Simulated scan of single mutants.
Amino acid sequence: MTNAMRNEPAPVRFDTKIAVLLRADLAVWQRLNVTAFLVSGVGPELPETIGEPYADADGTPYLPMFRQPVLIFEGTKETLTTAHGRALSRGLARSVFTADLFATGNDRDNRAAVRAVPADRLDLVGLAVYGPRNAVDKAFKGARMHP
């Protein structure tokens, strides 16, 4: 029996995708930290990715969140480098986290650490991208879903 036959709404399918690629050799705390930093840039730059604010039954307000799932992948250093190049060539919105950022303690120093290295030599440990679903899939080809 289909959703239509049960009078249920069809599943929402998005034309776009938010995806994060993490280097597989990161410690658990690093994976979580890198993911949080990477996706924090998506919403402010791309307001169409943000849904409406939440509220519970008591009317307590909560911040809005992404309107669609964030898919998390993992791969080798080489997979990240390849994905970064593909994301650049496809013009996808992106954020990066390099190994150097584990040694900095603030936003100013983070930006300086990235700015000091040419794009093709960044020591990437994480990459987030947003864009058309097919373009994101092609950029992350070879990566595997995070376990």
Rank of each mutant, 00 (worst) to 15 (best):
Q68G: 03
M65E: 01
M145K: 14
F73R: 14
A143S: 15
F140A: 06
Y54I: 02
R86Y: 11
R94G: 12
D25S: 13
R108Q: 13
K77H: 13
V39A: 01
L122C: 09
G85K: 03
I18D: 11
S40Q: 04
E48T: 03
A57Q: 10
V34G: 08
S95C: 05
V20R: 12
T81D: 10
S89D: 10
L26T: 09
N33F: 01
F102N: 06
D56W: 01
V125E: 00
D56P: 02
E48I: 03
A57G: 04
A83W: 11
V96R: 14
S95E: 15
N3I: 10
T76C: 09
R108N: 06
R115Q: 11
R90M: 00
G59R: 11
E8F: 09
P61F: 02
I72P: 01
D56C: 00
V114D: 04
R133Y: 04
V114L: 12
T2Y: 10
L63I: 05
G131C: 11
F66S: 10
P11S: 07
A4Q: 13
T49E: 02
P47A: 06
F102K: 02
L122E: 04
P44C: 04
G41R: 07
T98V: 15
T79D: 15
T2D: 14
G131V: 12
V96N: 03
L71F: 08
D120I: 06
A143D: 15
P47V: 11
V34R: 05
V70D: 06
P69G: 04
T35M: 14
D15A: 14
G126Y: 00
R115A: 13
N3C: 07
